[in-house]
Structures are given as structure tokens and as C-alpha cells.
Design a protein around this nucleic acid. Structure first.
Lengths: 186, 186
DNA sequence: CAAAACATACCGTCTGGACGGTTTCTCGTC
DNA sequence: GACGAGAAACCGTCCAGACGGTATGTTTTG
């Protein structure tokens, strides 16, 4: 009889814990290491418990996707409301959300998303729809060639970070950041 | 008794075939679907045959990595020798190699590389070293902030392609391309 | 004939998932 | 507020198949 069996029931917390563990596992040991056994064990829950919250693995991945995109959307929304200038607003929010790692954990989460994304065709498709959606939503303010260029560069830079790339010195990073900001205003 | 058993032995061709199949599988059905069974079967070889060429799965992945990076390096070298202007030469070659899908298959290969890369921490590390290497090799001609910016944008754009992103119209794509080229000259 | 290039058969482990049980929570009724 | 009944939140076990890998054969090649 394990402890978890008798502890206070807190489904939402457990659910969140499972998602966090899945994300961490995917980031550190690759998406291939995200197995039901590994996740449940690392989360201190039995596999049966995991399968109660997510009836199968696909729904676990989907849940992870939903969770991460929701967080990212919130981060974007925050920054956009704080930005008085409509033109290029979305791209600047995107930049800030990726650059300013206000929340260490959130940044990692966003990275997880991409790695898991590319490995699972199903999530790739969901991601495609997500970007498409945000894009059409901010067409008009953020569809200039320079804005597109900026967002591509942000993605690329963040991809480099993900690979643990030769870290740009903070100063160079700052220069880049300002160049990108400038692009959103043109 | 299978056909492959009695056909003419052509080890190098089989080896190449195995790598191609592995790449195709990874691209289309995700890195998770690259199994010894699947690869060998799709290549028309027995699993034993596969394991003869690559003694274990890791060496298969490494072989894939070597093959793809070698191809990409060759593509880069070609373009660089054809470019008379030293300044920004590497970045322009990089741009051209990613943009101009001269060889449909080669472009796919490069995409495979990245997806497989991110899923396998081991390959992530190899990739990191690879980029680091190319970077230090062309420091001096391709380390200006604008060149870095350009390469980031290229990566980002290519990532968008990978996701099957909302395709930019060819014209917009052309505009972007010219902006990037301009960046390599500044 | 030796070695390389395959094939075939098989094994131990892992993985996703089904299933039935046990404990705790929720909520209506009195 | 007590209380019982059902629902929700777990646990533990078992299984069929997939997976990576080994061991041993057979055929071709040099």
C-alpha cells in the first residue's frame, strides 16, 4: 500500500504535476523517453493513476500541448495589452515572450513544445494550425515583410538556444534584440 | 528464401538505401517511427542485414547524421566557391542551400536532420558541435550582427517550412530572400 | 577457402493499455 | 450535523505486441 494511495486527493495538482514531469522528461532526455511508466513514476503516481487523468498517451501529449500553448498565449496577451502601439504589437510580444525569460520554467516549457512537436506528426499539425490562427488574427498589424523576418529570426535564435548553441554574449544578444524591435516598427 | 538473399550483393548501395529509408521514415512519420524493423523492412532488407551495416541503432542514427551533414557541407562548399565576395559568403551559401531547393531530396534530408536532432539528445550535442565548428571557421567574414540575424531568420523560416507552415506566397518569399541577402553585405 | 553480405530464429525487456479493486470525496436527504 | 450512496481519484496486476539485440545459419564474392 503506497503513500500516494492514502494521501489527500488533489486531482488538479496531480494532473499538473504529470504534465510538468512529462515536459521536463521530454526536454532533458528527449521526447522518446516520455513513456507512461517514466512519467507516472517520476510524478509519484501509479500508471493507473496517470491513465485516469489521461485515458491514453495521445491525450497526455495533447494535454501537454494545450497547457503549454495556453501559457504562451497568456504571456503574449499580457505583453500585448501593455504595448500602446498597435503596429507590430504581436511581433514585439512574441519577441519579448521568447527573449525575456521572466519565468525560467515557462521558457523551458516553450522549448519542450517545439521538440515534442517536431517528433510527433500529430502535434506538428496542431502547431501549424496554432501559428496559422495567430497569424490571421494579427494580419494587418504584423504581416509586413519586416515583421515576418523578425519572427523568423526569433524562432531561429530560440532554436539555437534549444540546441545549446554557442551562446551569444549578452551584449550581442542585446544588439540583436534592438535590431528586431526596430524591424517591428518599420 | 527471400529475393534479397540471392540478388547481387551491393553493400554500399544497401547501406545508402537504409539511410535514405530511415530519413524518409523520420520525416514522414516522426522520429519515433524509426525502428530497426521498420527501416529494414522498408529497405527490403532483413533486420539482420541492417544490423550488419549498423551494429546498433545508435550507429544508424550517427550514420544518418554523418551522411546528411556531409551532403549539406558539400552544398555549402559548392556555393561558397562560386561566390567571389568573401564578406558574408558563408551566410549567403547557407541561405542559398536552404532556400533554393535545387535537390528536392536534399532539402528533405536537411529537415529530417533537425527533427531527428531535437528528439535525440545525443544528436543534439553533435549538432551543437557542428554549428560551433562552422561558426568559428567563418568568424571574421560572417560574425557581424546582421549576418547572425540573417542566419537566425533562415533557420526560423526553414523551421516554419518544416511545420508545413502557412506558406508564404512565392513573391513574399522572394522579398524576404533579398532582404536577407542585403543583410549579408552590410 | 576465408571473409563479407546477407537471412532466420529467437530472447529479454519495455510499452501502452485493459481491468478490477480500494480509498476518499461530494452531495442530497433527513 | 449525521449519514449513506454514488462518483471521483487513485492503486496493483496482467497482457499482447513492439522493440533492440544476439546467435547462428546460408550464400556470394574476392
Amino acid at each position: 500500500m503506497s503513500k500516494a494511495y492514502h494521501r489527500k486527493k488533489q486531482p488538479e495538482a496531480v494532473r499538473q504535476q504529470l504534465l510538468e514531469v512529462a515536459a521536463k522528461l521530454s526536454l532533458e532526455k528527449g521526447p522518446g523517453s516520455v513513456t507512461l511508466d517514466a512519467v507516472s513514476q517520476a510524478a509519484g503516481v501509479s500508471k493507473g493513476g496517470l491513465l485516469h487523468h489521461f485515458p491514453n498517451k495521445l491525450s497526455l501529449m495533447d494535454g501537454l500541448f494545450d497547457d503549454l500553448t495556453a501559457k504562451f498565449d497568456r504571456a503574449l496577451a499580457e505583453r500585448m495589452t501593455a504595448d500602446p502601439e498597435p503596429h507590430g504589437r504581436f511581433t514585439r510580444a512574441y519577441l519579448s515572450a521568447c527573449f525575456d525569460a521572466q519565468d525560467e520554467q515557462e521558457r523551458d516549457g516553450w522549448m519542450v513544445l517545439t521538440t515534442a512537436l517536431l517528433s510527433e506528426p500529430h502535434l506538428r499539425e496542431r502547431m501549424r494550425r496554432w501559428t496559422e490562427d495567430r497569424l490571421t488574427r494579427h494580419v494587418g498589424t504584423d504581416s509586413s515583410p519586416d515583421a515576418v523576418l523578425a519572427r523568423c529570426a526569433i524562432d531561429g535564435l530560440w532554436l539555437a538556444d534549444l540546441l545549446g548553441a554557442p551562446v551569444l554574449e549578452p551584449m550581442q544578444r542585446q544588439v540583436l534584440r534592438e535590431k528586431l524591435i526596430a524591424l517591428t516598427h518599420s
